[in-house]
Design a protein around this nucleic acid. Structure first.
Lengths: 155, 155
DNA sequence: TATTGTTATACTCTATAACTATA
DNA sequence: TATAGTTATAGAGTATAACAATA
């Protein structure tokens, strides 16, 4: 009984989730990074590109590319910032908003569907395990980040 | 207690696993798709590019690009196919082999690390839940694939 | 002087179509 | 005629560096 069984199953689930997500997005004319940006707008309201770069975790330059694409496909729009003439505010169009709403609903349905039929005990134990795994992974990634940064400083 | 809690945790874990993996690969001078190809060579031995395209799930043309990159960085090599002069056999270099071995070891260590300290009952329940989730996701993706294909035929 | 966004350039992943050499 | 791999072309994600306009 290999110790990596759970990790392997998690990885298999990750791949399928990503695969399914990508297909659903493609069907709507979206991509993962663009949707990530829309998601930030959906939850945080109109924002400057500098803010979006920070929130999505890409360079400000790349936000320009993503917003260009989202404007061309009608999911978002730029408008001038009311008080800072350097900046723009990016906001969802009606189409962008309704896509986000329906994706939100699909997400909730999927979550319920995947665990339907499992006993309460099983669900509770799973939640416990996943929470620990998430914590360990988080600290692991933090460690690696710290190490990478210290290596960078050494150069 | 939202029904999407487990799904959200799974998604968070997926993101971290991918993030950590990408950083480890970058440190070694690899990318995810290139590593996927090396992984196939590691487990299946030398292979033609046509076979790799099938195994990795990309176009034969793209295998050319990936193998070019792996040759340039010294992880794999092409050699002529002994009996078919059209084909080449791609095989790991020593460097490619040793990287795969160390990644394999790290993968096993990570799997053990993430669940260390959890009770046997918790682990068993988690395994049950993840197995069901994986099954449901698989059939869901299959459904979506079938639907996409039938839509394609309608065009 | 610092910040916001954009032009310029480059690398990687990925695909389709057309072509060459060989089966 | 079919198969293996490559040249040609293109779209998307992503980054750095240099630059304009504004703060």
């Amino acid at each position: 009984m290999s110790a990596t069984k759970i990790l392997d199953t998690l990885l298999a689930i990750s791949r399928l989730l990503e695969q399914d997500q990508q297909r659903e997005l493609e069907r709507r004319g979206l991509t993962v990074p663009r949707t990530h940006l829309l998601w930030v707008l959906y939850h945080g309201g109109p924002a400057t590109q500098a803010h979006l770069a920070e929130a999505v975790g890409v360079t400000p330059r790349h936000v320009t590319t993503l917003v260009d694409a989202l404007e061309n496909t009608g999911f978002a729009r730029r408008k001038p910032h009311p008080s800072d003439r350097r900046a723009v505010l990016v906001h969802l169009t009606e189409r962008g908003l309704s896509e986000m709403e329906s994706m939100d609903a699909e997400h909730k349905a999927l979550g319920a569907n995947l665990i339907a039929g499992l006993s309460d005990d099983t669900i509770t134990a799973t939640r416990t395990a996943l929470t620990q795994i998430l914590e360990r992974l988080t600290s692991l990634v933090d460690d690696h980040t710290a190490r990478a940064e210290s290596e960078e400083r050494d150069r």
